[in-house]
Each structure stands twice: as C-alpha cells, then as structure tokens.
C-alpha cells in the first residue's frame, strides 16, 4: 500500500470541500444483473474521477448518483463495521468501504460475492448465510443460575475468545470458501467463528451441543484449510485458526 503522508492526505481531503482536484481516474468494470431487464448478467464500465483516499464505496456511489441510478448495492455505515457492503474486488472479497481508490486505481473489477444467489447487481440473497449462523445456537447458553451481578470471568478467560467476537457477519469469509461454493449446505467459516465465540466462552455450557452440530457432514470437517477465509476477513479475525481449534476440540476434548 502506498501510504501518503499526513500532508498529502490533508491536501486531498481539503480538495474534497473546495471542489478542486488532484483527483485520479478509476475505471470500474461492474458485473450487472437485473432479472427485470434480462435473464443473464452483463458487464458495465464506468470511468470516475476520485480522490486517492476516497473509498471504493464512494466511487460506486459516484456511479450510482451521477451516471446510473439503477446500480444496486447494499451499504450503510461506510466504515467497515456494519458488514453490508461485501463485494468481490479484483477477485477478492472486500468491504467496499474498506478499499481505498488509490489501492485499486487505475482500474478494478467489481462483482457480487460468490456462492449466494445474486438478486440484483451486487445484492445477493443472504438467507442461506444466516441459516448457517442460526444453526450453531448463536447465543449464550448458561448454567441456569441467576446471579445478582455479573458472572465473573477472568481477563484470561475473556481473552480466549476475543478474536471471534469481532465478527460482523459480512459473509466475506464464507463466500470466499471453495467448499461453500460447491455445497451451500456447508455451514461455512462465519458460522464456525460464531460457534467458536461461544464454545470458548467460560460462561457458556453448550460447547458439546455446538460441536455435535459441527461434527455433522455439513459441519466443520468439510474445511480443507485453504486460508481464503482468513485472507478475506475485513476484521482481521484468524478465521482458519478458529476453525482448526474447533476441529481439534471435537477430536480431542471431552465435552
């Protein structure tokens, strides 16, 4: 990544308000699909002028707002925490709000994430993804006691599952997984990450139940450890490591 200096960044940012420019050209090639218009997908190309530190999401907005209002995508927070705008950028899953124009210019290819049915342009059907999430009992199951204050948990116990609490359910990992592409029944890495978050939480008592679910034929052993998921995660979660930890616990731990 070409890191600009503070001065450069500020110059660029100020231009945004002033309307002046040291803008650069970004040529976007976007895979389109709209069953109301035609049966198969097609490619459209757009050339936009953007500031180097603008987000790819800003460039897609530029297209939508100034060139083609029919371009459809999901987005909300625009700073990589809501998980709405997972797309494939030059063949890799990314959040559109976490890619800077300067890192993909002068041209980049944008497609919907793979393995989920495309509904329109960059919008996919998220339901199979959330079905995987729901299948792993994605909530704390406690021992039934009702203490008056908090359940104690040591900082070490808390740290044990810290990484997997970061998941924003964007589906970047699951839709980068070749096993998931071939078999929508596979729960996928995001569901395993969710299970991991509870299995290693000292306050939870249902690890055995979750591991039983994940040892099923559509469960965690479908994973072939390609590390696509870890590379795709915009939150920097060690997804493959979490999957391997769950596998190992199923094989060696007594629950």
């Amino acid at each position: 990544m070409a890191a600009g200096t503070v001065g450069e960044v500020l110059e660029g940012s100020d231009d945004r308000r002033a309307g002046a420019s040291n803008k650069i050209t970004l040529r976007l090639k976007i895979r389109r699909y709209n069953p109301e218009v035609r049966e198969d997908s097609w490619w459209d190309e757009f050339e936009v002028r953007m500031l180097p530190n603008d987000r790819l999401l800003d460039a897609l907005h530029e297209v939508k707002w100034r060139y083609d209002g029919t371009l459809s995508l999901r987005r909300s927070c625009a700073h990589a925490i809501c998980g709405s705008d997972a797309i494939m950028v030059n063949g890799q899953n990314r959040l559109a709000c976490k890619v800077l124009v300067k890192d993909v210019a002068p041209k980049c290819t944008v497609e919907p994430i793979r393995g989920l049915p495309v509904l329109k342009d960059l919008i996919v059907d998220m339901e199979p993804f959330f079905a995987g999430y729901r299948s792993v009992l994605p909530y704390l199951i406690d021992d039934g006691s009702e203490p008056d204050t908090e359940r104690p948990q040591s900082p070490e116990d808390r740290h044990r599952f810290d990484d997997t609490t970061k998941c924003i359910l964007c589906a970047c990992c699951t839709t980068s997984c070749p096993i998931f592409w071939g078999d929508e029944g596979y729960v996928g890495p995001a569901a395993v990450v969710t299970a991991h978050r509870f299995i290693y939480d000292s306050r939870d008592v249902a690890a055995g139940e979750r591991m039983k679910i994940l040892s099923d034929k559509s469960g965690v052993f479908r994973c072939r450890t390609t590390f696509n998921c870890t590379e795709a995660c915009p939150r920097g979660i060690q997804v493959t490591k979490a999957v391997q930890e769950v596998k190992r616990s199923i094989l060696f731990d007594r629950f």
Binding site: Y139, D148, D162
Partner: peptide, 23 residues
C-alpha cells in the same frame, strides 16, 4: 442502568474484565 448492564452480561456480552473478574 446497573440492572440492564448485568442483564446484557448474563446474555453473554463480552465486557472487558478487571483482574478480579468483574466488568
């Protein structure tokens, strides 16, 4: 407020902890 924070904790919210295990 304390009642609602404890409830969130009971529902699994992973608060950072003090050395003695409190929120």
């Amino acid at each position: 407020a304390p009642r609602d924070i404890y409830e969130l904790e009971h529902w699994g919210l992973p608060f950072n902890r003090t050395p003695d295990g409190k929120i």
